[in-house]
Design a protein around this nucleic acid. Structure first.
Length: 413
RNA sequence: CGGAGUGUAGUAUAGUGGUAGUAUAAAUGCUUUGGGAGCAUUAGGUCCGAGUUCGAUUCUCGGCACUCCGACCA
């Protein structure tokens, strides 16, 4: 993409109403726009990052049998009354609104009821199970106080998968697969090394749920990590009994701050019972469907990646989620060869891979922009480099500069 | 929801009971071109409402918004 086509532009200064590093840098780079506290629009560059993350998650969910669909955002009061979660005294962060005819609807803050209600209509037999539907959707939570930029918003985009299994045994097999798929996702988006599977409170049907906690000072959760096994315990269940049951040693655990980038949870029959979601087994007997939930907040993940890798010059994207792999910087010159070379490289690498800074700006400003925007590689085309017959390529993360030939450039794609 | 604070141009900030200033971004022209260039010209602003006052951006009250600390985060 040509940078001149982007209506967004970079800012020199951070907005005064953001203190979170992720929001400051993403606003400065023109990735996001703040609509109100806890509510952000995703600008063209920001959406590209979200889409890259979304595709990685989609691939991993599909690989364990997930089937993508879309549940509605407007939710029927009746189905939430079945689980007693319509009541504001039970769930205090609903966004609710009214239909013209006076009826009430809610904006979904989670998906268990919607899925249980839908599956109720289709699941009758053991032959219909298991089922692993999931969706990417906007979620609304009327938080009294939002903070941390896009890490905790009132409106956010998440992936939620629900597993509907015949019994606990079948559930457990899938649960373990999901755990591995989650680890792959965090590995692929570049935060695997800082992300710990964390034991957290489990609710009615299992001792623990599992969170995926990424270590960063921007985190709001306190966890105790075991560096060797890459396992952690959330503060909420941190006690001697738990430590022992996990085979960990208290003195080896270190207290850290983390962001919960994902979680997986055994729900059991907590939601299937109120919906009477059961099936006939092979003997013709009724059995309750056994459920699990698996969530990842995409905006939160994006914000966490920014927090984790940004340096004093700006954002540093891991290659897998960068909006473009390359920033192409053409240093203005009177010699037409410079522009010609830049255009040639742009075409060669493809507009999907390159953000081409074709604006009429000075070199310093283009370098600063490229550093702020954080593409993994910067290719610099100038009179000097053309004269040497080589191309200059700089690694955003390490700052390393290499002089390479045009042929070598091709290999980078 | 409890506590504290802040609202001035697109952005970041200064200042004042009496014509609102600077930087940056923007527009035009000329010069310039390897780490956020220079000169000139132009355009652009006091969150909303009420009160006090001859006069309010400034003081008072109310509202709204935003930020921070705490609580909450199913």
């Amino acid at each position: 993409m040509r940078q001149s086509q982007l209506f967004t532009k970079t800012r020199r200064e951070a907005p005064s109403d953001e203190t979170a590093k992720n929001a400051q840098l993403l606003v400065r780079g023109g990735y996001i726009h703040k609509e109100m506290a806890g509510v952000y629009s995703y600008l063209p560059l920001g959406l590209k990052v979200i889409k890259k993350i979304e595709n990685i998650i989609r691939e991993e969910m599909n690989s364990i049998g997930g089937i993508e669909m879309k549940t509605s955002i407007l939710q029927n009061k009746e189905i939430w009354e079945k689980t007693n979660r319509w009541d504001d005294n039970v769930v205090d962060n609903w966004f609710k609104t009214k239909l013209k005819n006076g009826g009430e609807v809610g904006l979904s803050f989670t998906n268990e009821e919607a899925y249980s209600n839908i599956l109720k209509q289709y699941v009758n037999s053991y032959k219909d199970l298991p089922a692993y539907p999931y969706d990417f959707k906007e979620i609304f939570r009327n938080e009294v106080r939002s903070k941390s930029g896009i890490i905790r918003g009132r409106e956010f985009y998440w992936k939620a998968l629900y597993s509907f299994s015949k019994d606990e045994e079948e559930h457990n097999v899938f649960y373990e697969k999901a755990k591995i798929a989650y680890q792959k996702i965090f590995e692929r988006v570049g935060i695997g090394g800082s992300t710990y599977i964390t034991f957290s409170s489990g609710g009615t049907f299992s001792k623990f749920s599992h969170e995926f906690q990424t270590l960063t000072e921007a985190g709001e959760d306190i966890i105790y990590i075991d560096e060797k096994s890459k396992v952690a315990i959330n503060k909420e269940v941190f006690n001697d009994e738990v430590i022992e049951s996990l085979g960990l040693k208290k003195e080896k655990l270190v207290e850290k701050k983390g962001v919960e980038v994902g979680n997986i949870f055994t729900l059991g029959t907590k939601f299937s019972e109120p919906f009477n979601l059961k099936y006939k087994n092979e003997k013709g007997e009724d059995e309750m469907v056994f459920m699990g939930s698996y969530g990842i907040g995409l905006g939160r993940l994006m914000g966490t990646i920014v927090e984790l890798f940004a340096d004093d010059k700006g954002i540093v994207w891991p290659e897998a989620v960068a909006p473009f792999k390359f920033s192409l910087i053409e240093i203005a010159s009177e010699k037409p060869e410079v522009k010609e070379m830049a255009e040639k490289i742009y075409k060669k690498l493809g507009e999907a891979n390159v953000l081409y800074d074709d604006k009429d700006l000075r070199a310093g400003e283009k370098f600063a922009d490229a550093d702020l925007l954080g593409m993994p590689y910067q290719i610099i085309v100038s009179e000097k480099n053309i004269a040497s017959g080589k191309l200059e390529i700089k690694n955003r993360k390490t700052g390393e500069i290499k002089m390479i030939s045009e042929d070598e450039l091709q290999n980078l794609c």
